[in-house]
Design a binder for these strands. Sequence first.
DNA 1: AGATATTTGTTCGTATGTATT
DNA 2: TAATACATACGAACAAATATC
Lengths: 268, 268
Amino acid sequence: MKSPVIIRSIDPQRSQGLGLGRGRGRSLAVAGIIKDWIIKHGLSPGDRLPQEHQLIADLAVSKGTVREALKVLETQGLIRTRTGPGGGAFITEVREDHASALLANYLLFRDVSIADIYELRISLEPQLVADLAPRITTEQVEELRTRMSSYTAPPATIEEEREQRRAELEFHETLAGFSDNPLLGFVCGFLARLLKELTICKRIYDQPNPELRERGVSYQEQLIEALCARDAETARAVMQAHMRAAQRMMLAQEAQLTKGFLSTSERQ
Amino acid sequence: MKSPVIIRSIDPQRSQGLGLGRGRGRSLAVAGIIKDWIIKHGLSPGDRLPQEHQLIADLAVSKGTVREALKVLETQGLIRTRTGPGGGAFITEVREDHASALLANYLLFRDVSIADIYELRISLEPQLVADLAPRITTEQVEELRTRMSSYTAPPATIEEEREQRRAELEFHETLAGFSDNPLLGFVCGFLARLLKELTICKRIYDQPNPELRERGVSYQEQLIEALCARDAETARAVMQAHMRAAQRMMLAQEAQLTKGFLSTSERQ
DNA sequence: AGATATTTGTTCGTATGTATT
DNA sequence: TAATACATACGAACAAATATC
């Protein structure tokens, strides 16, 4: 492992263009400068940015402006700040849940239906498991089995019903996390989280649906079997059937995404 | 059309918990309060938030804190601010390119290959055109034809070659914009933009590739024909063949996404 | 066209919280 | 415990943008 790079000063370069006036939108420009500078210098997660007072000096802007710029980068998920000696702003990898929350904002004023979500799941999840089959590890299979064990038994209460439904979606989230295609993994994980939030907000799964659960468990047992056998095409076929069956049942319970979903982007 | 809602004050409610100390991360908490409040009151694009001074009074925080909170929401693409009389912060629909840029940050420190991108395109774009075929309008067909006309002739220079490649990807972006599934449309559009930025940054298309262009044009002519005929299955098949062919050629030119791509999130 | 009022944008000084030594 | 180094928060004054008269 390499040791973190700690930068002590930032080259003003592009900031020259800012010296002309106190025009509008300084903090956004500063955020852009810092980001370009991060990329240009190839900084990686763990590396530290110059301190506030240093940025103030280098970029020739006030503390408030620097703070707003850093807040922009923090909102984008690119940095994290810590107080105290040795503290400051540190580069971080944008976390998947953070990116999900930001993308969810895009859907806030758009109508996304269950059908829309399942259209993508049907197209992508079979492909995902087909890719995974030839190279899945025993640890990964074990993790899938563990997750599945939490909903093999029929639920006793409404609350348990909901919890099982959540767990079932987390099975798919886990699967998505195993993908070696970051894009495919992200989209599948995002869709699962979308359905999970939908579950919480709209309670459309409140009425017991034993058929959905039983068939789901059955499909997933077949899926794990196919994955263990490194059988990509069977895995693909099983997942496709699973998704289609789930879609049919979900569409029976018509529902729309509400707007009240996912403000996780602000949660530390 | 409804007239914009203009809110004059914000209920402190959750902000009570903030009065205890000057602890860490006030602005993020304030951003969350404002966002929840937006959702709770069902504000829509065009509606205005209370003014700075009002938020300062209602939330009992300083101007700097309010400004940082608003900067968070602006970065998320949820609001826009204007100066002057009648100005303030206005709710906006998160723009597609804005969401794209935020999502691109997620890929900044992850390796996304051409193969990864095409894996999704092959899965999704055929589905997209199949959905579109039965309900495409003549105006939409016309727009596609217009876009296509810019690269039917062979390119004379390297620069023109690149420009044509960009235009070809914008054809797919346009197609994505026609989708009535916001998720499917977004992902396909995002993939096209990803390839477009890749084109600019890495210049992997610098050497002329007449075969790719000619076959691409041929596929797209067939596609438009199928769309006009409202023939979903032919459209799907043509797009699938188109994507597979493009993938084969692209993979021959091995390339990796650089980090220097898309800082459009800061561009006003 | 120009003056004025309104609202956001920027700066600076100061004080407080927090983690390290 | 105290000293230190850092981010975080506040408030007042000023600058810039923009709508209205």
